[in-house]
C-alpha cells in the first residue's frame, strides 16, 4: 500500500499524484516506469515516473483518465492509498551530449519528458522542446519545461495557444531552417511518434520513442508488451521502453494496443454507471414542502 501525498488535476482528466515510495524514489532514473494496481481486483498498468526525490521518498505520477483503471485512480485524493506500486522498471533513457536535442511531446507525454529534458540539458545539450496539445487547457508542464530547456515551442490543434497546428509542423520548421538536430526524442500518442519517426528518417537523425504497451508483470515474464523492433521481437518492459524510432513497427503496436477495446468498453460503461449521479437527485432528496 502506497500513500498518496497529494493529488491535483492540472488539466481536464489529467491528474498529478505524489506518492510515497521511498525505495523507488531513490532508484528511479529518467525514462523508467512503475506498475500500479489501484485496488484489489484491479488491473496492473504501467505509468512513467515523472519525478522523484530520495530526500522526501516521494515519486510523481501523471494519470490521464481514459479507461476504467485510470479514471478510478483519478478519483483518489491525498491521504488515500494505491494498492500496489512496483519499480523502477525498464531501462533508463540513455543520456549523452549529442549537441542539439529536440524533445517532442504531447498530452501526459510532456510530463514524462520533463526529467529527460532536464537530464539532456545537464549533459550539455542545447535542448528544444516542442509541446503539443489539442487545445490550450491541455497544455501541461510548460513553465517547468521552460526552466530546463533552451527553447520551448507550444502548438495547439485549434490555435487557442501557441502556434496553431501539430508538433510535426514545428519540427518540420526546425528541420527546414537548416538547424539539424543531433537527437530527437518523441513521447506521446502513437500516430504522433510514428509521424516524427518518418520525418527524421530522411535526415538520419538519431530518434527515440518511448513505447507504452499493455503490460502485466513488467519484468519480462508475460511477453504481452512485445513489439517488433527492426524485425526482432523485443519486450517493451525489459528491453525498452525507449527504442530507435526508425526500427519500430508502429502499425503492429497500434493494433496490439486495441486488442482489448471491446472489454475496455464494457469496463468503462460499468464504471460510468456506478459513478453516475442522477441529475434529479437534488430534487428527489428534498424534503417535501409542508
Amino acid at each position: 500500500m502506497n500513500k498518496i501525498i497529494s493529488a491535483e488535476f492540472i488539466a481536464p482528466d489529467i491528474k498529478r499524484f505524489v506518492v510515497e515510495a521511498p525505495l523507488i524514489a531513490r532508484k528511479r532514473k529518467p525514462g523508467q516506469f512503475v506498475i500500479v494496481r489501484v485496488r484489489e481486483n484491479g488491473e496492473r498498468i504501467p505509468l512513467t515516473i515523472v519525478d522523484g526525490s530520495p530526500e522526501t521518498g516521494f515519486i510523481t505520477l501523471m494519470v490521464q483518465g481514459i479507461g476504467k483503471t485510470t479514471k478510478t485512480m483519478n478519483q483518489l485524493e491525498a491521504g488515500d492509498f494505491v494498492r500496489d506500486v512496483v519499480g523502477p522498471l525498464g531501462k533508463p533513457t540513455h543520456i549523452e551530449k549529442y549537441g542539439v536535442a529536440v524533445c517532442v511531446c504531447g498530452g501526459v507525454g510532456t510530463a514524462e519528458v520533463l526529467p529527460i529534458a532536464k537530464a539532456l540539458k545537464e549533459a550539455g545539450n542545447y535542448v528544444i522542446t516542442i509541446i503539443g496539445a489539442r487545445t490550450k487547457e491541455l497544455v501541461i508542464a510548460e513553465s517547468e519545461m521552460r526552466t530546463v530547456c533552451d527553447e520551448v515551442i507550444v502548438t495547439t490543434d485549434d490555435g487557442t495557444y501557441g502556434k496553431k497546428g501539430f508538433v510535426t509542423e514545428a519540427l518540420s520548421a526546425i528541420l527546414q531552417s537548416g538547424r539539424k538536430p543531433d537527437f530527437v526524442l518523441a513521447v506521446g500518442p502513437l500516430p504522433m511518434m510514428k509521424a516524427i519517426a518518418e520525418m527524421t528518417r530522411p535526415y538520419q537523425i538519431r530518434t527515440e520513442v518511448s513505447l507504452n504497451s499493455i503490460m502485466i508483470d513488467g519484468t519480462g515474464m508475460c511477453g504481452g508488451c512485445r513489439a517488433n523492433i527492426g524485425g526482432k521481437t523485443q519486450f517493451v518492459c525489459v528491453d525498452g521502453p525507449e527504442f530507435d524510432a526508425h526500427q519500430v513497427d508502429f502499425d503492429q503496436i497500434a493494433k496490439r494496443q486495441k486488442q482489448f477495446n471491446a472489454q475496455e468498453k464494457i469496463s468503462l460503461d460499468r464504471f460510468t454507471q456506478e459513478n453516475h449521479t442522477c441529475k434529479l437527485e437534488p430534487f428527489i432528496n428534498q424534503p417535501e414542502k409542508q
Binding site: 488491473e43 472489454q263 475496455e264 464494457i266 469496463s267
Partner: peptide, 12 residues
C-alpha cells in the same frame, strides 16, 4: 489477475 471473473475483476 482473475480475468475469468471479468468484468468483476478488471483484467480482460
Amino acid at each position: 489477475m482473475k480475468a475469468y471473473q471479468f468484468p468483476d475483476a478488471d483484467t480482460p
